[in-house]
Design a protein around this nucleic acid. Structure first.
Lengths: 311, 311
DNA sequence: CTTAGTGAACAACGGGTGGTTGTGAATGAC
DNA sequence: GTCATTCACAACCACCCGTTGTTCACTAAG
């Protein structure tokens, strides 16, 4: 399947004849004829019925035409995604199922005309470097880890405090609780596999441990959320933290429990980071959207590390 | 933009190195290197950062990857749309904004996994020929015109009676009516441009004229719905019929009125046609869906030509 | 530090694809 | 019948793509 042949097909379908399409594409009529013939040979069907005064689509050609247009649009979008200058707004999020993705989906619904690329970088160091180099336009992160202030050319604003909930199996001691306090969790083992040392997650949970005396185990590789859920469901002595807005594939027969945490509720702070001088027009739109949709949250009764930037 | 290069890009991104991708694609590592280099040259950005133990995506590459996958999916769908055997279900509708399209959208919502191609053929003759040849699987039509019974190998079922409404401008004599009867329309000029002689529309309106003494003018070429709406809005002596479910781009300042017609309400009958021996599995699903969603309509107080097949 | 191994880039060669020119066949208008 | 239009086919040519052979860069083990 050759994109140039598909482009030629669409041109002929619109022009109604080979010659006019050839003129538009700046090739000879014979070249168009060969391209269409090659496309028809590849697909195994006849796309045009040739007449003495042009070419008209067969039924197969009519069915193929919208797919051909969509294919060309996809190629155009793919090219635009990396075109320097006027490329889509590029935003880095933590994970594809996080509350941040929810914010971006809301932004996309509010501004469906704004081209958007969402990606997931490794850590905040990479993200900041990418923002400074102009490779990405914005990043959702928890900033800043203590002792590591953001560079002067990076601006940030706190956009979302995501309450953490306790996730336990059915045999866990707290499985029946309607809610638990942070003090009640002292002595219980909280398992957070996959927390990579040096990322902003580490600093957050370090502070949580220091202030409330929790036992958080970050050991072990991250085998994915399925393995995590399996283990939590089967191990009475283990629980884990999970963002309130996190949506998982929820195995029905695991009997997992989500339990709100109170007095105070630990919240994971999400901030938007961007470069002071970034001229992308959609960036201003995104900031305005986030400011409008995330305003008015109440910080009373919640806990976050002292080093996070204030709201 | 070469699809083979894009395919190679995705393979390298998944394999993490050029050599393994080359083995998967059954070419040499050098060919992969040249394809990626050509793609990078065309796009003007570097997609991989080459290391001593493989290649990893740059940020541009990460942004490009989902678009590349989408591009390959689009190519796959385009090819499948004309592949003989196991191609998408191909259904012919009257117009893209008709109630039939609404039925197909409902079917697509109910069965999003079923691949579907919707097209618009010229008239019922073409449609029947296409059904018999296997070029399409089903067609929504008003069947059958009097004296032209369907061939024996074509089956049909009536799926929808669409009530017709009167469309007038603000200065029309009936513009203020909450509803009108067919008898009230005697003497008024009904304008239906673009009705092609010989199509099933003609037979329908011929019957309507014969039974109720209306004045229907089918003269003049069809300049599109915009021109039709403009003329109706500006001409006090003209009105037209329009399906109740038809959704148009509605110019706000035209003052157009939709007026229900009663005693009886003329309904335009839509039937589904298909070939007796068509083995496409999705065809049975479509028929079941239509039978389930269009059941229970009331024919009391409506009018349709006597020659249409009964419900 | 040396050496072996891996992975990617570069150079040269051969084959195939794609574009052009020239020509022929079919259809429709006058 | 003649002409104009349109598409298909054949021959020629150039360029691009893939292969082979080789070199360079980096890593890891001894």
């Amino acid at each position: 399947m050759d994109l140039e042949a598909v482009r030629t097909f669409v041109a002929v379908a619109e022009a109604g004849q080979f010659q006019e399409a050839a003129a538009e594409l700046a090739v000879t009529q014979q070249a168009v004829s060969k391209r269409i013939a090659a496309l028809e040979r590849n697909l195994g069907v006849r796309l045009f019925s040739r007449t003495a005064r042009g070419a008209e689509l067969t039924i197969d050609g009519q069915a193929f035409l919208p797919h051909a247009r969509e294919l060309l649009r996809a190629a155009e979008r793919a090219g635009a995604s990396v075109r320097p200058g006027r490329r889509p707004l590029r935003v880095d999020v933590l994970t594809s199922r996080s509350a941040q993705s929810g914010l971006m989906r809301g932004f996309h619904r509010a501004h469906p005309d704004i081209e958007l690329d969402v990606l997931m970088l490794f850590d905040i160091e990479t993200a900041v470097a990418a923002i400074r180099s102009g490779a990405i336009d914005a990043s959702f992160r928890a900033v800043a880890a203590p002792g590591r202030p953001l560079p002067e050319d990076i601006e940030s604003v706190r956009v979302l405090d995501e309450p953490l909930q306790l996730l336990t199996g059915p045999a866990h001691a707290l499985a029946g609780a309607r809610s638990v306090t942070l003090a009640q969790l002292t002595g219980h083992r909280i398992w957070m596999p996959g927390i990579v040392p040096g990322t902003e997650w580490t600093a957050y949970y370090d502070d949580l441990v220091a202030e409330f005396g929790l036992t958080i185990e970050a050991t072990g590789p991250n085998f994915g959320s399925d393995a995590l859920l399996d283990t939590i469901a089967d191990t009475p002595a283990l629980a884990t933290f999970m963002g309130e807005h996190t949506r998982l594939i929820w195995p029905a027969d695991h009997g997992l429990r989500r339990i709100p945490v109170t007095d105070p509720t630990p919240v994971y702070p999400h901030s938007l980071l961007w470069h002071r001088d970034n001229p992308h027009p959609a960036l201003a739109t995104l900031r305005a959207h986030l400011a409008a949709t995330t305003a008015g949250h109440d910080a009373a009764g919640t806990w976050a590390p002292r080093w996070v930037i204030p709201r």
